[in-house]
């Protein structure tokens, strides 16, 4: 039921996203025809020919309707630049970005959950302070710096992981994981810090609640209190933010995929923007926006399982 109630706003969001994506890319200065021809071949006749061929001279509403109509049937057109089908290009690259992103979130959570809990449990102590200042420090380091450091340590000095490049999972699963590890780690560092900070704050609040005191009085072990009683009620903010942070991961993938020379969606987006490959930019941006909206929609739905009050219309922990 809750899902059905949320559906109209989801659809409205997706429509707005498609319109904005289209408008923004269409309003970018710089003629795609010029990019296709290269500066030295860009005679006015050649530009006119290319523009006509691409339908760039049609009015914007006509172009939008044609594009969105085709997009709804899964046809995003062909790239101006490479003439490959946009949908195919995205499908080829999505697994790379998704693998690195999911791996990054897993690594971040694996570190953040125990560290955040420790920090909350030992709130105010030296351990807490060290963890807090470290996570602030990590938050402040941009991911491209992290990436360069990781490459220097693990590839150039130790020689145990490849510095750049991608091996498809279907070609060699082990090499695939090796090639995904450093990029995922680069993205995970900042996430780790965010998650740790959030979990610590919520956990401190939870640990002051009556049921925790009650459990302590009953002699329940600390470990059991933390993992069985306190973690679930403390994880709402973490989940919301993990959903929102998917955006940060996708944004980070633009940088990370360029640094590590990965054939992912982020790099495709960057190249396409620079080269004014409008159909490709629109397709990629739409797919990214849709996945972002869907992830956060899913997080909303998950709440109603974590906290039954939500599906009954009484918002408690929604952020």
């Amino acid at each position: 039921m809750y899902v059905l109630r949320r559906l109209p706003s989801l659809l409205a969001t997706l429509f707005a996203v498609s319109l904005l994506t289209f408008l923004m890319t269409s309003l970018l200065p710089g003629d795609p025809a010029l990019q296709i021809l290269g500066a030295e071949n860009a005679t006015p006749e050649a530009i006119a020919e290319v523009r006509a061929e691409l339908g760039l001279d049609d009015p914007l509403p006509v172009r939008y309707l044609a594009w969105i109509g085709d997009a709804l049937t899964g046809d995003f057109g062909r790239s101006y630049r490479t003439s490959e089908p946009v949908a195919e290009a995205i499908i080829d690259r999505l697994p790379v970005t998704a693998e690195v992103g999911i791996l990054a979130i897993i690594i971040a959570l694996l570190v953040a959950i125990p560290v955040g809990m420790l920090s909350a449990y030992r709130a105010g102590t030296r351990t807490d302070k060290i963890i807090s200042s470290t996570s602030f420090g990590l938050l402040a380091v941009p991911n491209f710096m992290v990436a360069i450091f990781l490459i220097l340590i693990f590839s150039v000095t130790l020689g145990i992981l490849p510095a750049t490049g991608w091996v498809n999972f279907t070609d060699d699963p082990v090499q695939n994981l090796r090639s995904a590890l450093l990029p995922a780690l680069s993205l995970a560092i900042a996430e780790m810090a965010v998650y740790t900070r959030l979990l610590r704050t919520d956990m401190i609040a939870t640990l002051q609640q009556d049921f925790v005191t009650m459990a302590r009085v009953k002699g329940v072990s600390n470990r059991r209190i933390l993992f069985r009683h306190a973690l679930r009620p403390s994880s709402f903010s973490l989940m919301t933010v993990a959903g929102v942070q998917v955006g940060a991961i996708i944004g980070g993938s633009v940088v990370i995929e360029t640094l590590f020379a990965l054939p992912g969606v982020g790099r495709l987006l960057l190249d396409s923007v620079v080269q004014r490959d409008l159909l490709m930019v629109q397709g990629v941006a739409l797919v990214i926006a849709v996945s972002y909206v869907v992830v956060n929609f899913t997080v909303d739905i998950l709440y109603s399982y974590l906290d039954p009050r939500i599906s009954h219309g009484r918002s408690a922990a929604r952020v």
């Binding site: 490459i151 150039v156 020379a261």
Partner: peptide
């Protein structure tokens, strides 16, 4: 194709 100068150089050093 490796667009970043630093990581391309690092890849030569690491033997990739």
């Amino acid at each position: 194709p490796m667009p970043d100068e630093d990581t391309r150089l690092a890849s030569l050093q690491s033997g990739d």
